[in-house]
Design a protein around this nucleic acid. Structure first.
Lengths: 249, 249
DNA sequence: AAACTATTGTCTCACTTTGTTACATTAATA
DNA sequence: TATTAATGTAACAAAGTGAGACAATAGTTT
């Protein structure tokens, strides 16, 4: 028996959101990618906007549904609105592979404009959950993604560009790292995002003179070498930014 | 007899665009603002997206309709999607003041998400034209705008923030100035955008070492002082950017 | 226990960029 | 011809960045 797909009573037609969810595993910058049932199709996590729901709230809800996390750094970065980006043929494949009965003129097969967000999360805190249409959701390093459907590759590339631009302005590191971290790990985040090596001494000097960090006790990691200090971002900053993050506008 | 308003056959529901159109008159940074007939309401120029039209193309078309200009620097900068931003009461006032017969459940009174663009144009080249709903369209200096309806003030503020961020990256000056200009005028554009005075010698040195400008003949303005050189942006740059501008994605 | 290794924190020096002031140049005017 | 006001450029100080050196040190090896 065929299942009933979502009705368009609940959602705004023609409007979707997609999220590029970044995480950092200590070495690589990764994003979450869904794989749809029985199709070999890979996609960004996304969803639709409810009729009475703020678009930001929809994106936040989508993030919560995939990660269980609330209060995440989330930023809208672009809206993809080309006519040709919509692919009813692909959407039909996905729905059919999931055993849905597809009504005549079904709304999900229409043209969609997608509002894209990127999120920064602490990799270790999350056990991602697939959505109803997907087999699984997994972390993929940004330089080794599967082939993504539709224009999702483009969305990721744009997200990465914007993330790089915001790297200094927005204290990106704060959201990708645990509360305490070594200078080396912080540097690795920067390197992973920028895709280039940085000079250790210059980086350290820069970070310290910016006066954003608090130094804590040393971390005795067990390595045969001098133990590094742990740092955290100053408390005022974490307050300020987590506000700005999800609420703005 | 009441006029027929636009039907939603032609346009995507719930979706609009608004444009912050910047111009520079030699002293002040200004934007174009519409005033609706018989309402005292001021708004940004905007419009709807046709069912088979790229969103960027819609914004470009809207700009052409208001300015007669094609090939303008136009950049999408944010999408405003809060539920509370839509104001059917205000839309009804505007339509009624224009003598439209408003159908039951009329689509324009629904919720709208607006994709916002900013444009940079050469002030001198333009004679703006009001739309069907408006008495007039005028330039207003950004620090002395009329009270704008709905969230349009917020849209302008965000546009200005983004414009400031892009000031160095995107060669903004090129699009606001005539092909040849003096260093003083270029500096005034920067000052108008940033809202602060800059140091003449530092600015001049910076601009010259960036190696973006070509120096031309002197401009004998009639002032009782040394005549300044005229400059233009290097040809390669103007090519490159005007492409990037309207097409990207 | 001493030597060794790898990483860390800091310093130095050269070089670049920016802030600030100074000054000679020059087109129009008195 | 002297005066005026903006312009182009140089000079020097202050701040920031790139590159390398080096001592300190936690664990490992001998």
């Amino acid at each position: 028996m065929l299942k009933q797909p979502p009705s368009n009573e609940e959602y705004l037609p023609h409007l979707a959101f997609d999220s590029v969810i970044f995480g950092f595993n200590g070495t690589q910058l990764k994003i979450l990618v869904l794989e749809y049932h029985n199709t070999g199709l890979f996609a960004l996590p996304g969803g639709f906007v409810r009729r009475y729901e703020d678009v930001d709230a929809a994106a936040k809800r989508g993030l919560w549904e995939r990660t269980g996390l609330d209060n995440i750094y989330l930023e809208q970065f672009y809206t993809f609105g080309n006519f040709s980006r919509s692919r009813p043929d692909i959407m039909r494949t996905i729905l059919e592979a999931n055993g849905f009965e597809i009504p005549e003129d079904y709304w999900i097969l229409d043209r969609f404009i997608s509002i894209a967000y990127y999120a920064l999360i602490n990799y270790d805190e999350v056990v991602p959950k697939p959505d109803e249409l997907s087999d699984n959701i997994n972390w993929y390093p940004i330089d080794n993604l599967p082939k993504l459907m539709m224009d999702h590759q483009l969305i990721v590339e744009k997200a990465l560009l914007i993330l790089r631009e915001n790297l200094d302005k927005k204290l990106v590191g704060m959201n990708l790292l645990p509360p305490k971290f070594t200078m080396q790990v912080l540097q690795k985040v920067y390197e992973a995002i920028l895709g280039e090596k940085l000079r250790r001494t210059t980086f350290q000097r820069k970070m310290l003179t910016l006066d954003l960090l608090v130094r804590h006790e040393k971390l005795f990691s067990g390595g045969a070498h001098k133990a590094p200090y742990l740092y955290s971002f100053k408390h005022e900053l974490t307050e300020q930014l987590s506000q700005e993050a999800v609420l703005s506008n």
